[in-house]
Amino acid sequence: MRISVDPEVCEAHGQCSIVDMDLFPLDDDGYSAVGPDREVPEGEEDAAKLGVDACPVRALRILS
């Protein structure tokens, strides 16, 4: 599974990072540092889905 963030949409709510700060790191200003294409380690797909769903502005998505 791969995930991505749209930096134009991210508003730094930080909700993804609460779900899992390793899968969903933030930069110093609180914006998502997931980047355009980040691999989810095997076995952490459910956590990745929870984190993507936690975004209140739908800035995160599952690429594959």
Binding site: A12, H13, Q15, I18, L26, D29, G30, P56, V57
Partner: peptide, 19 residues
């Protein structure tokens, strides 16, 4: 939807217990 409320705050101090 979307609903970007700030009831849990935002950014690095956003409520860790939000979930």
């Amino acid at each position: 939807s979307p609903n970007p409320h700030v009831a849990f705050g935002k950014g690095i101090h956003a409520c860790i217990g939000a979930q």
